[in-house]
Design a protein around this nucleic acid. Structure first.
Length: 468
RNA sequence: GGUCCCAUCGUCUAGCGGUUAGGACGCCGGCCUCUCACGCCGGUAACCCGGGUUCGAAUCCCGGUGGGAUCACCA
């Protein structure tokens, strides 16, 4: 059995969107699972809509997703020679022919056909004229009128098309560029692609492509059409459903591993399991377990999965992902050990890296802003002495760890007859400026004695000056 | 409209003739607790409809309905 070869073949006419990312992912997973090769090919035969910025955007998105390729990127625009030699083969063999019909004329014949309820297809005016190459002429496939073409899909099973539904479609445009269907077949053929995994929206192209394979006398690859990703209104996902660009999810603070986990589970399942690491995905992914029906993209569930991944990750692995978000806020996270310690306290309370960065504010801002309401409620004269007592004991503490801290708090609580809640909240406000944060002992330990004492002093000062 | 695909809780899904139809997200209770979270316990909620086949259908077949995709010298 020959080794599996899959490919992702986006057209660079915009950013990489969610559906494309999932197609890329499934191709990649199938290749990695089987020990095959994954190839990247840029389908830029549309000279008008293709842009270099889009190509870069696609690279950037794939890199973030962690989807690497073994061959490529190949550009169809570099391969015109290959398409032309195959066109010549087809014309010489009589499987294709030159056509000089004007686009307007063809549109007119389609209109007419639609009006009479007939199929809007090319009428074959040039089919038997035996025309040779000439400027502006297109090349059409001589397609069969009768019979049937069947797609044996790995996901959907056998799909039968009557050939009379197809017409002599264009293989090469008047400007010499191949059409999508032709270029895709020539490329898949010459790149020895064994398994074509792509979106559902391509099934209607498949019989046309099969006809081309047959005309070229080449064995068929396997096809696997993955169901669509829908928006909340069950229509194909688009801009009006919110963010569709992959990099937008990066910027929202998703972890790439969480994102691919979510994408994989949208359409693919493995029993009751929801959480998959990247290597588990590779190990367990098979086309057999890809479902047949389209699925709605649920950002809430995606975020929940992201929270699970954040919680399961090692702080050291999270740090590089969090850094850009800290930097964007102008915070200095150069101290890696400090950053990781801070992360460890935030993992259970962050659904996204954005949330984590926001909650990390007090770790990276020594000039913390005291929330007005919080200060008014908790930094009052009645806690002045307990805070002072705590401060002095902390300064005197020999070992500054959670165990010692708990003892110190216990002493202060007993001395002033306070419950932990009564002292923890004022301290929390003093250290973070707000009433919400990780556990009080955790943040004291992470912040370290110097910062803690300085902030307690500030709070004490605040009480002294703001309170009558 | 033609052609093609699809159909289990609101959503993602498990199920591949016999299950109290399971899990996850969400939502609602409760517990835990120094705040917020995490976690834990419990609850809510589904087989699109109609015919067959079968001792027995969510599972197989047919029809309907609904949704989606596609009908280019775009990919």
């Amino acid at each position: 059995m020959s080794t599996v070869r899959t490919r992702f073949a986006p057209s660079p006419t915009g950013y990489l969107h969610v559906g494309g990312a999932r197609t890329a992912l499934f191709n990649w997973l199938h290749a990695r699972h089987t020990g095959g090769h994954f190839i990247l090919r840029i389908e830029d035969t549309d000279r008008v809509r293709s842009t270099d910025a889009s190509v870069q955007a696609i690279f950037e998105a794939l890199q973030w997703l962690g989807i690497d390729y073994d061959e490529g990127p190949f550009y169809q625009s570099d391969r015109l020679e290959a398409y032309n030699t195959h066109i010549d083969r087809l014309v010489d063999a009589g499987h294709a022919y030159y056509c000089t019909c004007a686009p307007e004329a063809i549109e007119a014949m389609r209109e007419k056909a639609r009006a009479t309820g007939a199929k809007p297809r090319y009428d074959g005016t040039c089919r038997d004229k035996g025309l040779g190459p000439r400027p502006g002429a297109v090349v059409r496939l001589r397609a069969p009128f009768t019979g049937t073409t069947v797609v044996n899909d790995r996901i959907k099973g056998a799909i039968v098309f009557a050939n009379e539904e197809l017409d002599d479609f264009v293989l090469r445009r008047g400007d010499g560029m191949p059409t999508y269907n032709f270029a895709a077949v020539v490329d898949d053929m010459t790149m020895n692609i064994t398994t074509i995994i792509r979106g559902d929206d391509h099934v209607m192209n498949t019989p046309k492509q099969i006809l081309i394979y047959q005309a070229l006398g080449h064995p068929l690859p396997e096809f696997a059409h993955v169901p669509m990703v829908l928006g909340h209104d069950r229509t194909r996902m688009s801009k009006r459903h919110g963010a569709t660009s992959v990099t937008a999810y990066r910027d929202m603070g998703l972890l790439p591993d969480a994102f691919i986990n979510f994408l994989a589970r949208l359409g693919w399942s493995y029993g009751d399991q929801e959480f998959f690491t990247r290597s588990e995905l590779i190990e367990k992914f098979t086309l057999e377990r890809v479902g047949k029906s389209a699925g709605v993209f649920d950002p809430v569930k995606m975020t929940a999965l992201n929270a699970d991944h954040i919680q399961a990750a090692a702080p050291a692995d999270l740090a590089p992902h969090l850094r850009p978000f800290l930097a964007a806020r102008g915070w200095d996270a150069a101290d890696d050990a400090y950053l990781q310690a801070a992360i460890a306290t935030l993992q259970a309370r962050s659904k996204t890296l954005v949330e984590m960065a926001e909650q990390a504010h007090f770790y990276f801002n020594d000039a913390i802003a005291l929330d007005e309401k919080a200060a008014a409620k908790f930094l009052k004269a009645n806690v002045l002495d307990p805070l002072r007592g705590l401060r002095d004991r902390l300064v005197a503490l020999a070992t500054f760890d959670e165990k010692a801290l708990e003892e110190v708090f216990a002493q202060v609580m007993e001395q002033f007859d306070l419950k932990l809640g009564k002292i923890a909240q004022p301290v929390r406000v003093a250290l973070t400026g707000t009433t919400v944060s990780p556990g009080i002992f955790e943040i004291i330990t992470v912040l370290g004695r110097e910062r803690v004492v300085a902030r307690l002093d500030r709070a004490i000062d605040h009480i002294v000056h703001k309170t009558p």
